[in-house]
C-alpha cells in the first residue's frame, strides 16, 4: 500500500447524501479477479448513459473538475455493500482523499487498506466547502495527514482527526497482515482452547 503523508489536489464536489457502493461501482463490474482497472467504471451509471456516452451534467465529466483527486460528498458516504471494489475504483480513477460529514463503517475501513484518506468534517464545514467550490473560491486543497490539517490558497483551513493507529498505518504504508503475523505465538496459544467441533474438513463427508 502506498503511504499517505500529504496530498494536494483538485476538489470534485458530489453534493448528495448516502452515496452507496452500488453507485460508486455498479455490480456488473465486480466480476474482475484483479484489484486494478476499476477506475473506468467509477460512478458508471451516473457518468454514462445506457449507450455509454458521458453525461455532461455529472460532476466527474465537467472540464473544471477534470483530474480531481479529492472527492467532497454528503453524509453516510459509502453505505451499502462491503465491496472493496469501491475504494479500488476511487483510487484507480485518481482519488486519494474523500471528505464527507460521515462514512459507512466498512467503506471507511476499506479506504485505509488502500492508501485513501477518508476525512470526516462537521456538516457545516462540508457545506462551506461545497459553497466555496461552487463560487470558485476553492479549487484545490492541500491535505496534510502529519499535521491533521487541510487548507486551500484562499484562506480556508480545517483540522481533522483520524484514529491514531489508522493514521500511523497510512503514514507508513504499513502491511498490517505482517503486524498480525508477528503475534503467531499468541494466536497459537489461543487456538489450543478452540472447540474441536468448530473445524470443517475439506473433504468431509456430510
Amino acid at each position: 500500500m502506498e503511504a499517505f503523508t500529504q496530498h494536494t489536489g483538485k476538489i470534485v464536489p458530489l453534493d448528495r447524501a448516502n452515496v452507496d457502493t452500488d453507485q460508486i461501482i455498479p455490480k456488473q463490474f465486480l466480476k474482475r479477479v484483479e484489484r486494478t482497472g476499476f477506475g473506468q467504471y467509477l460512478f458508471y451509471n451516473w457518468r454514462f448513459d445506457t449507450q455509454g456516452n458521458p453525461d455532461p451534467d455529472f460532476e466527474l465529466n465537467q472540464e473544471k473538475y477534470a483530474d480531481g483527486s479529492i472527492l467532497l460528498s454528503g453524509a453516510n458516504f459509502g453505505c451499502g455493500s462491503s465491496r472493496e471494489h469501491a475504494p479500488w475504483a476511487l483510487l484507480d480513477y485518481g482519488f486519494r482523499v474523500v471528505i464527507a460529514p460521515s462514512f459507512a463503517d466498512i467503506f471507511y475501513n476499506n479506504c485505509f487498506k488502500n492508501g485513501i484518506l477518508p476525512i470526516r468534517l462537521p456538516e457545516e464545514t462540508v457545506n462551506t466547502l461545497f459553497q466555496r467550490v461552487a463560487q470558485e473560491i476553492t479549487h484545490t486543497l492541500t491535505v496534510d495527514l502529519e499535521a491533521n490539517k487541510m487548507e486551500d490558497h484562499n484562506g480556508f483551513s480545517a483540522e481533522f482527526k483520524v484514529e491514531p493507529y489508522r493514521r500511523y498505518c497510512l503514514l507508513n504504508g504499513l502491511d498490517d497482515i505482517a503486524v498480525t503475523l508477528q503475534k503467531a505465538d499468541k494466536i497459537s496459544s489461543y487456538e489450543k482452547n478452540l472447540p474441536s467441533y468448530y473445524q470443517v474438513q475439506e473433504k468431509q463427508n456430510l
Binding site: 466498512i106 476499506n110 498480525t180
Partner: peptide, 15 residues
C-alpha cells in the same frame, strides 16, 4: 462484513 483486504488478513492470520 469485511472488505477484501481483511478477507486476506483473516485467511493469513485467522485474526
Amino acid at each position: 462484513g469485511i472488505g477484501t483486504s481483511e478477507v486476506e488478513h483473516v485467511l493469513a492470520t485467522q485474526c
